[in-house]
């Protein structure tokens, strides 16, 4: 399967941290020091993960499907611990007699075979098996050698200061935090600051931080959102003409979040949400299961993205 690089968006420039933050200098160092390295690493990752973000188009799907020329995937293997992505193989298929345009599989990393019944054992599961919430508290509040305190950007008790562009971590579930950190590590999610941080974390650090943050209370109860009508409408009802289901279906009404891997959106900074939707649209962020967010982001206009972001940001007073 030929890889196609998406039109690469530059990694968004990091907002300078507010002057009152603690530990500004490690952040600045991390920002400007390895930025070039990060850009290069992200660029390679983008190439490696088939994340053009375009929904596969019926007309384009004429390429032959993949045939496994790697190790035989026997029908019905015993459930293994191998990651499902790895198990499916990555063989190239011989081109048919009639040359056809190849198809990109933009959102599935690999096209699984119908004889592959293996379970998914995502890397964040293993990370969660290690690390304790006590260790996590230390990393979050004060940091450890080599690892800056999460609170320096994400705020005390996992609630980012008002006006900051960083997302809250309190209220996110343990599994979600662990997954995001592993995704930053693998490159399916990328960010100039978070990527090197995640890469410097051991599995046990990831587990520790996730356990601690996932256990933090959300101190403010979500309030009825009073943002733009268009945002509320997309949240509650979706849009038939655009083929958009209600965001609330998965994210909870008003973005309150339901379930471990579907993040809450309520109260997140508008700029953060806008950046995420942009990242999904370009494929820079490709850690959404099944590619659903990438599909939706492509059908959201800039005005819709603004409306949604304002709506969710307004969910907290």
């Amino acid at each position: 399967m030929m890889l196609r690089r998406s039109s690469e968006e530059p990694v968004p420039a990091q907002h300078p941290p507010a002057p009152h933050r603690r530990r500004v200098w490690p952040v600045l160092l991390l920002m400007f020091g390895p930025v070039v390295v990060i850009l290069a690493a992200v660029g390679v990752n983008m190439g490696r993960s088939w994340t053009s973000g375009d929904a596969v188009r019926a007309a384009a799907v004429t390429a032959p499907q993949m045939v496994d020329t790697g190790p035989a995937v026997s029908a019905g293997p015993a459930p293994q611990t191998s990651n499902q992505v790895a198990a499916a193989g990555a063989g190239q298929t011989p081109m048919p007699a009639t040359p056809r345009p190849t198809v990109t599989s933009p959102t599935a990393e690999v096209v699984r075979m119908a004889t592959d019944f293996s379970p998914a054992r995502p890397t964040w599961e293993a990370a969660l098996a290690a690390g304790s919430a006590e260790d996590g508290q230390r990393i979050v509040e004060v940091g450890i050698p080599g690892l800056v305190a999460c609170s320096s950007c994400h705020g005390k008790a996992g609630i980012a200061p008002a006006g900051s562009p960083f997302p809250d971590l309190a209220g996110k579930q343990t599994e979600y935090i662990a997954k995001q950190l592993m995704d930053f590590r693998s490159g399916t999610r990328s960010h100039a600051v978070m990527t090197p941080i995640a890469r410097s974390m051991k599995d046990s650090d990831v587990g520790a931080v996730a356990k601690y943050l996932g256990g933090l209370p959300v101190t403010e109860a979500p309030v009825r959102a009073t943002g733009p009508a268009r945002g509320e409408s997309l949240d509650r009802v979706g849009d038939m003409a655009l083929g958009l289901p209600a965001c609330a279906n998965c994210h909870g009404m008003g973005g309150t979040g339901i379930g471990p891997l579907l993040p809450s959106l309520a109260g997140e900074p508008a700029q953060y949400l806008i950046e995420q939707l942009h990242a999904f649209r370009t494929g820079n962020r490709s850690n959404d299961d099944g590619g659903v967010m990438r599909g939706f982001a492509k059908r959201l206009s800039e005005a819709d993205i603004q409306a949604l972001a304002q709506f969710y940001a307004a969910s907290k007073q």
């Binding site: 998965c250 379930g259 891997l261 579907l262 299961d289 659903v292």
Partner: peptide, 13 residues
């Protein structure tokens, strides 16, 4: 009335 098990359905058991 939960929304989505896409991330969990193939984490067998």
């Amino acid at each position: 009335a939960y929304a989505s098990y896409a991330n969990d359905i193939d984490r067998h058991g």
